[in-house]
């Protein structure tokens, strides 16, 4: 009992504060989504009216799909790029240290700076256009900024998040001791069998973590969207911010917030399950 109190006191300023703060914020979001704390003062009390408003808006569903699309593509591409490199750099060789340091470099660059750098490079008078025109590949500069497929945003997310995936995955890959792989080889497992039966299952957790964290980060993106995204579409975060900021509709924003958290949650569950399924299937192959 005394011990429990002691633990409680120790946890209070750290976990306690975090949970109190985040709990209050979360409660506030959910409560406002259901009509409480209506600052416009028109109505107060539980209601589903704000859900009705938001969920029947085309712009909202467009934002929802858009965020899901951006987040899933970014997560999958970043991991798909980072995984083979992490495997390849498992054993050090000449140049591999420099290479992995360079791969991690974008971690040091804040997202907004990354967005600026990209926009600067791909803009109408940016490096890419000038270079390709100079090299004679294109007759005249092309417009690449704010493309309607969101390639610029996905590119930014990958640029920013790939090093993070690389860090997680290379940690997992390097934690596999050489003798374990040797043992598998010794027992008759060829290259692909070693990958399927040893490396893949031992890195599943890291891969899931990387996918989930990138997905959640990209689903909640605001700055890449507003700087480099197509003006005709919103991301969930930018839609939420515009509802709250320019329209003063806190309750609508709260509905979007809850939906964004739901998107993050279900995206995370979906990706985790997908990886599990792939690992299982590949492991079962004879």
């Amino acid at each position: 009992m005394r011990n429990a109190i002691r633990i409680g006191l120790l946890l209070a300023p750290g976990v306690g504060l975090v949970l109190a703060f985040m709990g209050a914020v979360l409660y506030r979001a959910v409560a406002q989504a259901f009509g409480l704390y209506d600052f416009s003062g028109t109505s107060d009390g539980l209601s589903l009216a704000h859900w009705q408003d938001v969920l029947t808006t085309k712009r909202f569903w467009r934002a929802f799909q858009w965020s899901a699309y951006i987040a899933a593509s970014s997560a999958v591409i970043a991991v798909a790029l980072a995984y083979p490199i992490a495997l390849w750099l498992r054993k050090p060789f000449r140049g591999s240290l420099i290479l992995s340091a360079m791969l991690k470099a974008p971690l040091l660059v804040p997202g907004l700076v990354a967005a600026f750098l990209l926009v600067n490079v791909i803009s109408y008078h940016g490096f890419v256009n000038e270079f390709l025109v100079w090299a004679g590949v294109w007759a005249e500069p092309r417009r690449m900024q704010n493309d309607s497929n969101g390639f610029a945003i996905i590119g930014l997310q990958v640029w920013k998040q790939m090093p993070f995936a690389f860090l997680l995955l290379s940690g997992a890959v390097q934690a596999i001791p050489d003798p374990v792989l040797n043992a598998a080889q010794d027992l008759g497992a060829g290259k692909f069998a070693r990958f399927r039966k040893i490396i893949l299952p031992l890195t599943t957790k890291a891969m899931q973590a990387a996918l989930v964290l990138i997905f959640i980060g990209a689903a909640g993106d605001f700055s890449f969207q507003t700087v480099a995204g197509p003006p005709s579409v919103n991301s969930m975060a930018s839609y939420m911010a515009s509802l709250q900021g320019s329209e003063g509709d806190w309750n609508g924003a709260a509905v979007v917030a809850v939906m964004l958290m739901a998107l993050s949650l279900f995206g995370a569950i979906g990706l985790t399950a997908l990886v599990q399924l792939i690992t299982r299937t590949l492991g079962r192959l004879a």
């Binding site: 003798p179 374990v180 043992a183 010794d186 027992l187 008759g188 060829g190 040893i198």
Partner: peptide, 20 residues
Amino acid sequence: LPPEARDSAMCFQSYALFPH
């Protein structure tokens, strides 16, 4: 010959068990 094609099996000093 690569290890997987040899007719030998090793019992490792560090065990090298498959943790999963």
